[in-house]
Measured scan of single mutants.
Amino acid sequence: TTYYDVLGVKPNATQEELKKAYRKLALKYHPDKNPNEGEKFKQISQAYEVLSDAKKRELYDKGGE
């Protein structure tokens, strides 16, 4: 599973699309609303952290993490 899959976006997604997808999923899986989905929330946050940063995203796209 790639970070793009976690957020449900395509690899060519814009920053705005990433932000929108992250917010939607973060609300859905937030531990306050969904106590059993803490791990999913962490995955979503990690994916967004990497993909929202241009340098980290470039490194990730080249095969790094």
Rank of each mutant, 00 (worst) to 15 (best):
60 Y>I: 03
29 Y>S: 03
47 A>E: 02
60 Y>C: 04
24 K>A: 14
27 L>V: 07
8 G>A: 05
64 G>V: 15
64 G>P: 13
14 T>P: 05
63 G>N: 13
29 Y>T: 04
25 L>W: 04
29 Y>V: 04
3 Y>F: 11
26 A>V: 14
29 Y>F: 07
6 V>M: 11
25 L>E: 04
29 Y>I: 04
51 L>M: 02
47 A>H: 01
54 A>W: 08
24 K>P: 03
44 I>V: 09
49 E>S: 13
40 K>W: 10
38 G>A: 15
49 E>R: 10
64 G>D: 10
26 A>L: 15
45 S>K: 15
6 V>G: 01
2 T>D: 09
57 R>G: 03
22 Y>E: 01
18 L>H: 00
59 L>R: 06
30 H>Y: 05
1 T>D: 09
19 K>S: 11
21 A>R: 04
43 Q>T: 09
18 L>Q: 00
27 L>R: 12
15 Q>F: 15
58 E>I: 05
38 G>D: 08
39 E>S: 09
5 D>A: 08
57 R>F: 03
49 E>C: 12
34 N>C: 08
7 L>Y: 01
41 F>L: 06
18 L>Y: 01
55 K>E: 13
13 A>H: 02
2 T>W: 08
6 V>A: 08
24 K>S: 11
6 V>Y: 06
41 F>G: 02
5 D>T: 09
30 H>I: 04
21 A>H: 04
31 P>A: 07
56 K>D: 05
43 Q>K: 10
28 K>F: 10
20 K>Y: 12
45 S>E: 13
31 P>D: 07
54 A>I: 13
61 D>F: 02
24 K>Y: 12
4 Y>P: 00
10 K>A: 12
3 Y>M: 05
5 D>V: 05
40 K>V: 10
51 L>Y: 00
28 K>I: 12
58 E>Q: 09
8 G>C: 07
65 E>N: 13
37 E>H: 11
16 E>L: 10
1 T>L: 14
11 P>M: 08
14 T>Y: 02
16 E>S: 09
34 N>D: 09
15 Q>D: 13
50 V>L: 05
8 G>M: 06
29 Y>A: 03
14 T>F: 02
13 A>S: 05
50 V>D: 02
2 T>A: 07
46 Q>R: 09
11 P>S: 11
9 V>L: 07
17 E>L: 05
35 P>W: 06
62 K>W: 07
55 K>N: 13
52 S>T: 06
21 A>S: 06
38 G>T: 13
47 A>D: 00
26 A>G: 05
51 L>H: 00
45 S>A: 12
53 D>A: 02
34 N>T: 08
44 I>E: 00
28 K>H: 09
18 L>R: 00
42 K>L: 10
12 N>V: 04
14 T>C: 04
33 K>Q: 12
43 Q>L: 13
56 K>A: 14
30 H>C: 10
34 N>Y: 11
9 V>I: 08
49 E>N: 09
35 P>I: 07
64 G>T: 13
3 Y>K: 02
46 Q>V: 15
65 E>S: 14
57 R>W: 02
18 L>T: 01
